Simulated scan of single mutants.
Amino acid sequence: MQIELSEKHALVTGSTAGIGLAIASGLAQAGSRVTVVGRDRSRVDKAVAHIHQASGRDDASGVVADPGTAEGCQAVIEARPEVDILVNNLGIYGALPFFEIDDAAWEEIFQVNLMSGVRLARHYAKGMHARGWGRIQFISSESALNIPAEMVHYGVSKAALQGVSRGLAKVLAGSGVTVNTILPGPTRTEGALGMMAELAAERGISVEEMETLFLDENRPSTLLKRFATPEEVASLSVYAASPQASATTGTALRVEGGIVESIT
C-alpha cells in the first residue's frame, strides 16, 4: 500500500514532540504539507526542521499558539484558514487523587483536551464538507475506555472526545469527510518518560524497570508488554488520514497494545 497525500495540507496540534511530532512527520513523509502547532517558537522551529529532514522537503511550517484556549484556536484558524487533514493531538495529563481534583483542574483538562479539538473541528469541518473531502482525528487514549483511578479527570476528558468524534462523524455522514479517534496506550513520549524517570527515582530502579513495573501495576492486561513508540501510533494516524481509509469513519481505532479487555 502506497499512501499518497501530496495534494493535502495537514494541521497537527501539540506537534512539537512525542506522538504529535511523529504524526506530523509521518504525514509529511506521505507527501502532505504540514503545519505544526505549539506554544514555544523555538520548539516549533525545531519540529519544523525535524519534519523537513524526515520528508526531504521544505514545505512544513509552524504556528505559535495555544489551542487550549479560545484565543489560541482563533489564532490558529486565522493563520491557516483551510486544511484537508486535522489531527487534534493536543492534550495534558497527570496523576492526581480524585478528591484533590478541584474545579479548576477539571476545567483546565476539558479546555485543553476537549474544547481545543471541538473549536478547531467546528471551523475546519465546514471547508472540508464544502470541498467533499477531509480527515478529522481526535487523539484519545485507552484511558477513555478504561478510566484510570489515578487520573479520573483525564480519562473522562478522553471519553468525551469519543462522543464528539462519533457525533461529528454523523453530522458529516456521506460528505467524504471522515472523523475518527485514535486510542494509544502507554507510549514513550517525552512526558511519559519524564514521569517514569520520577517514579523510578522514588523506587531506586532504572527507567526501563519502572516501565515494566508501571505496566504490571497499572495496565496488567497489556498484550504488548512494553510502551509503544510514537512512530507506532503515528502509523495508524497516517493510514486513517489516507484516501485508502475512506470507509473508516465514526470509530475508535486502537493502538494501545491490547490493554482494553474487549473483542469489539
Rank of each mutant, 00 (worst) to 15 (best):
T181W: 00
N88Y: 07
P148I: 02
G176D: 11
L172D: 08
H129A: 13
R119M: 13
G91Y: 02
A125W: 08
A121M: 08
L96G: 06
A160L: 02
P97W: 08
P148C: 07
A125I: 03
E78D: 15
G72E: 15
A121P: 00
W133V: 07
P81T: 08
V76R: 04
I92D: 04
E142K: 06
A144Q: 05
E82P: 04
Q111E: 14
V83S: 05
P148V: 05
S157K: 00
L193C: 07
A121F: 06
E100Y: 00
G72F: 04
S141Y: 10
G62I: 07
Q137A: 15
K126V: 09
A65L: 08
Y124A: 11
L86I: 04
R135F: 08
N89I: 09
E107F: 02
S175G: 10
S165L: 09
I182K: 06
V179W: 03
S165R: 02
G163Q: 10
A79S: 10
A75K: 13
G191E: 06
T187D: 12
V64Y: 09
D58G: 03
T181G: 14
M128A: 04
L172K: 08
R166F: 15
F110L: 12
P148Q: 04
R131I: 01
E142D: 12
F98Q: 02
S165V: 01
D66K: 11
L90M: 14
E82R: 10
S143N: 07
N146S: 12
T178V: 11
K126Y: 04
P184A: 00
W106A: 09
I101F: 12
P184R: 10
R131F: 03
A60Q: 02
G185I: 03
V64I: 14
Y93Q: 15
V63P: 01
R80L: 12
A79Q: 00
F99N: 12
